[in-house]
Design a protein around this nucleic acid. Sequence first.
DNA 1: TTCCGGTCTTGATCTGTATCAAAGATGATT
DNA 2: AATCATCTTTGATACAGATCAAGACCGGAA
Lengths: 248, 248
Amino acid sequence: MLKEDHLSVTQDCNDCPIRHRAVCARCETDELERLEDIKYYRRFEAGQTVIWSGDRMDFVGSVVSGIATLTQTMEDGRTQMVGLLLPSDFVGRPGRSTAAYDVVATTDVVMCCFRKAPFEDLMERTPHIAQRLLQMTLDELDAAREWMLVLGRKTAREKIASLLSIIARRDATLNMGRLDGPVTFDLPLTREAMADYLGLTLETVSRQVSALKKDGIITLEGKRHVTVPDMTLLLEEAGDDTDGGMLV
Amino acid sequence: MLKEDHLSVTQDCNDCPIRHRAVCARCETDELERLEDIKYYRRFEAGQTVIWSGDRMDFVGSVVSGIATLTQTMEDGRTQMVGLLLPSDFVGRPGRSTAAYDVVATTDVVMCCFRKAPFEDLMERTPHIAQRLLQMTLDELDAAREWMLVLGRKTAREKIASLLSIIARRDATLNMGRLDGPVTFDLPLTREAMADYLGLTLETVSRQVSALKKDGIITLEGKRHVTVPDMTLLLEEAGDDTDGGMLV
DNA sequence: TTCCGGTCTTGATCTGTATCAAAGATGATT
DNA sequence: AATCATCTTTGATACAGATCAAGACCGGAA
């Protein structure tokens, strides 16, 4: 649900009918005019690396459309995805000059960027922005910690169910969909990307997706189009508290 | 390294010779006087649960002394530690009223607390605080993501080495120790707690600690007192980039 | 000193997931 | 329509770590 004082850029941002919300609806007008100078769009193709870990990072921004991932790679090639960037997600870290992770476009991606130094100035002058960014960062921290439980303690089947639940929920949030009937969405990730997110191999992902399908927890049309007849069942498979809290 | 504008409470805070730094050195004096009204100390015994997940959380604070953990538990008892709270770490979440995790005192703990509502007011009025808190939260997010790589992709031996590296580094930071010679510290965690942090069983932790000892990567006096003759070797075992970045 | 509860180690065996291998879809390009 | 590259599924086997089980250690209490 996009809030009035949302820092994120909404999907309409590219046309910019609501560009004045791009940073913060509570900002005064003159700040927003100034914003125009430091805002610009970037387009990335599917597969393209937006930024490499260790690179100088001279912008912050948010995803307007498309999907990108945040990944960490060890020298021997083992890869762990540490974040999934969907439309409205914020990218970059105020106060740090180099990127800590690879950011890779999974699909074609449009990002709305702000030059970093002026953005940081703006943040200093307008406290709402720092406060809003703090809330967003705390949410991401919660998500990361939630994921630590998935990675550390869940079985392969539970991991898959957890990932599907999260994608279903995020998809519903973005598209104003409901979660109380059958839920349908497109998987934005290859089996390999899912594996990298879940700390599994792609073969195991494939097997467990097939198993969930066989057991009627999900239906597949093609490889990527998923229908969940009953989210409650999926959440049970994920091993989450079954009080339905996630459905609210 | 404690910074001048550190939000955290330092170890001396209990005696409060430097209590005016308790929130932010850059705050003006009158804000600090007001602070006295909303600050208090709490003492917890080893094993005591500071707060239960889901509980109403009416304070924020920071650890003055002792060690606490942030854990998540599934209905069937599987437990994952999602954070380790050492002296100077911040506890609590401005803007959210219930705790998301269990906070458990591992040793006796003293926390310096601030009543939540007034603290949030203070944050609104004094932008440095929100900004400092944002930096701290971003650091925690980095730590959580680092840990996702450990949980998702590292072997048991690498996991143990990673945990020991982190504890060694944090210990050195707090005690102004060096990391370029032999490093000695006390393990603040039982084998079971280590297992819960690493997504392993306590038996596997025990075996891998023994293996690292046999291979001369570490030495043990008793069960808990660890010496690392050469941090570089330990970092190699952890599978971290071996450019020594961590030693700086 | 002995007892005792909690912690830790070690051994034997089991199992979930990785690994290795091959073939089946799918969609783009010619 | 045929070719090709990429993604996905499925099978056979191997292995890291879990599980089950038994003691060893260690500090505190009596």
